[in-house]
Amino acid sequence: MLCKLVPKVDNNMPWSRLCELIEKIRPILKWRVVCWRKSSRGRIRINTNGSYLQDTTKAGNGGIIRDENGDVIIAFAVTVKSNNNNMIEILAANYGVELCLSLASLKWI
């Protein structure tokens, strides 16, 4: 892992020196402003997310459905079974759409 972070590191250096290098590694912090936008008048908005932890094979998804004013209509979080993160994201979106369809009187985007 250290070779990936610091490609020119000498693998044969003493353990104490290697530990000193590791302690100096700092993550590169990047950030950006993320804003939720209101939906069109008379419509609702679905935001979903899914997560899969390969080490534990635990997975889940969640989401929130808001009206045109940003007020919460319903939120959900469920445990699901899958073996990769992409499938969990798809399941989260699908669950959100199905939930919206069950609220048939609402228009959604």
Score class of each variant (00 low, 15 high):
residue 95 Y to A: 13
residue 9 V to M: 06
residue 68 E to K: 08
residue 85 N to T: 15
residue 52 Y to I: 03
residue 2 L to E: 03
residue 19 C to W: 14
residue 43 R to D: 10
residue 84 N to V: 03
residue 57 T to P: 01
residue 37 R to N: 07
residue 6 V to G: 05
residue 99 L to M: 07
residue 99 L to V: 08
residue 51 S to L: 00
residue 25 I to E: 00
residue 88 I to H: 01
residue 35 C to T: 07
residue 94 N to P: 05
residue 14 P to G: 04
residue 28 I to R: 04
residue 109 I to K: 08
residue 25 I to P: 01
residue 50 G to R: 00
residue 39 S to W: 05
residue 80 V to Q: 02
residue 39 S to R: 06
residue 67 D to Y: 00
residue 92 A to P: 04
residue 86 N to F: 08
residue 64 I to W: 00
residue 32 R to V: 15
residue 109 I to W: 15
residue 82 S to L: 09
residue 59 A to W: 06
residue 19 C to E: 02
residue 99 L to C: 08
residue 7 P to D: 01
residue 98 E to P: 04
residue 4 K to Y: 06
residue 36 W to Y: 06
residue 53 L to P: 08
residue 67 D to N: 07
residue 79 T to A: 06
residue 60 G to D: 00
residue 62 G to V: 01
residue 11 N to Y: 11
residue 41 R to M: 14
residue 63 G to I: 12
residue 66 R to Q: 06
residue 13 M to N: 04
residue 34 V to N: 01
residue 3 C to G: 15
residue 59 A to V: 05
residue 41 R to D: 14
residue 64 I to K: 03
residue 34 V to M: 04
residue 9 V to C: 08
residue 90 I to W: 03
residue 34 V to E: 04
residue 36 W to Q: 03
residue 76 F to P: 07
residue 91 L to A: 03
residue 12 N to C: 12
residue 105 S to I: 09
residue 92 A to Y: 04
residue 22 I to K: 09
residue 23 E to C: 11
residue 108 W to I: 12
residue 48 T to G: 00
residue 84 N to K: 04
residue 98 E to T: 13
residue 44 I to H: 10
residue 64 I to P: 02
residue 12 N to G: 15
residue 102 S to T: 13
residue 56 T to W: 09
residue 75 A to E: 06
residue 24 K to D: 08
residue 108 W to N: 08
residue 69 N to Y: 10
residue 75 A to C: 09
residue 79 T to C: 11
residue 18 L to Q: 10
residue 104 A to V: 13
residue 89 E to G: 03
residue 33 V to E: 03
residue 3 C to S: 12
residue 85 N to M: 09
residue 73 I to D: 05
residue 23 E to H: 13
residue 82 S to D: 04
residue 15 W to F: 05
residue 11 N to F: 11
residue 40 S to T: 10
residue 78 V to E: 11
residue 71 D to T: 03
residue 16 S to K: 13
residue 105 S to L: 14
residue 73 I to N: 01
residue 51 S to G: 09
